[in-house]
C-alpha cells in the first residue's frame, strides 16, 4: 500500500498527489512513469512521474480527471493509500547534448512536459517552454514551468490570457524569429503532438514526443501499448514512452486510443451517478 502524503487541487479537472513510494523515488528519472491500481477492482493506469524526492521517498503525480479511474483516484485524500504503485517504468528521456530546446505542453501534458524542461535546463540547455490551455482559468504549474525554463510562452485557445492561439503558432513564430532549436519536446493530446511534428518536420528539427498509449502491465508482456515507429512495432511501455515524433504513425495511434471510448464513457457515467447518490445521502 502506498500512502498519499499530500493532495493539491490544481484546477477543476487536475489534481496533484505526493505519494510515499521509496523504491520508485530512489530510481526515478525524467520521462519515466508509474502504473497504479487504486483498489482490487480497479484498472491499471499509467501516470508520469512529475517530480520526486529521493530523501523523503516520495513521488508526485499530476492527473487529469477524464474517466472512472482518475475520478476514483481523486476521491482519495491525504492519509489514504493506493493499492499498487509500480515504477519507475519506461526509458528515461535522452536529453543530453542539446543547446536550445523548445518544450511544448498541451493541457494536462504540461505535467509531463515540465519535468523534461527541468531536466534539460539542469543539463545546461537553453529552454523555451510553450504551454497551451483552453482558457486562462485552467492554467496549471505556471510557477514551476517558469522556473524550469528561460522563457515561458503561455497560449490559450480562447485568448483569455491575452495570448490567443495554439502552441504551434508560438513555436512557428519563435522559429521564424530566428530561434535555433536543436530539439523540440512535445507532450499533450495526440492531435497537438501530430501538429507539432508536422511543423518541425518542415524545419528539420528533431522532435521527441511522449506516447500515452493504453497500457496494462508496463513490462512488455501484453503488447497493448504498441505503436508503429518508422515502420517497426514498438512497445511504448518499454521502448518508450519517448519516441522520435517524425517516425510515429499518429493516425494509427489516434484510432487505437479510442478502443474503449464507449465502454469508458459508460463506466464513468455510472461512477458519477454513484458519487452523486452518495453525496445526496
Amino acid at each position: 500500500m502506498f500512502q498519499i502524503v499530500q493532495k493539491k487541487r490544481l484546477n477543476d479537472s487536475m489534481t496533484q498527489m505526493r505519494v510515499q513510494a521509496p523504491y520508485v523515488a530512489k530510481k526515478a528519472q525524467a520521462g519515466q512513469f508509474i502504473i497504479l491500481r487504486v483498489n482490487e477492482y480497479g484498472e491499471r493506469i499509467p501516470l508520469t512521474i512529475a517530480d520526486y524526492d529521493r530523501e523523503a521517498g516520495t513521488v508526485d503525480i499530476i492527473f487529469q480527471k477524464v474517466g472512472k479511474t482518475t475520478l476514483l483516484l481523486d476521491t482519495l485524500e491525504e492519509g489514504d493509500s493506493i493499492l499498487d504503485f509500480i515504477g519507475p517504468l519506461g526509458k528515461a528521456s535522452e536529453l543530453e547534448g542539446y543547446h536550445y530546446a523548445a518544450v511544448i505542453g498541451g493541457g494536462a501534458g504540461c505535467a509531463i512536459a515540465y519535468p523534461q524542461a527541468k531536466a534539460l535546463h539542469a543539463l545546461g540547455a537553453k529552454v523555451d517552454m510553450i504551454a497551451g490551455f483552453r482558457s486562462q482559468d485552467i492554467i496549471i504549474l505556471e510557477d514551476e514551468m517558469k522556473a524550469a525554463s528561460d522563457q515561458l510562452y503561455l497560449m490559450t485557445d480562447d485568448g483569455s490570457n491575452g495570448h490567443k492561439g495554439f502552441v504551434t503558432d508560438a513555436l512557428k513564430q519563435n522559429i521564424e524569429a530566428g530561434a535555433k532549436y536543436d530539439l523540440v519536446v512535445a507532450i499533450g493530446p495526440l492531435p497537438m503532438m501530430k501538429a507539432v511534428c508536422n511543423l518541425t518536420k518542415e524545419y528539420g528539427i528533431k522532435t521527441i514526443i511522449s506516447m500515452n498509449s493504453i497500457m496494462i502491465d508496463g513490462t512488455g508482456m501484453c503488447g497493448g501499448c504498441r505503436v508503429t515507429v518508422g515502420g517497426e512495432t514498438k512497445f511504448a511501455c518499454v521502448d518508450g514512452p519517448d519516441f522520435d515524433g517524425h517516425l510515429v504513425d499518429f493516425d494509427e495511434v489516434m484510432k487505437r486510443a479510442k478502443t474503449y471510448a464507449e465502454l469508458e464513457r459508460e463506466s464513468t457515467r455510472e461512477f458519477n451517478c454513484r458519487l452523486m447518490q452518495q453525496a445526496e445521502q
Binding site: C222, G223, G224, R226, D249, K255, T259
Partner: peptide
C-alpha cells in the same frame, strides 16, 4: 492491420 482496434495479442 495489426494496429487496428480489435486486434489483440493473446497475452493482452
Amino acid at each position: 492491420g495489426e494496429g487496428l482496434v480489435g486486434t489483440y495479442s493473446a497475452n493482452e
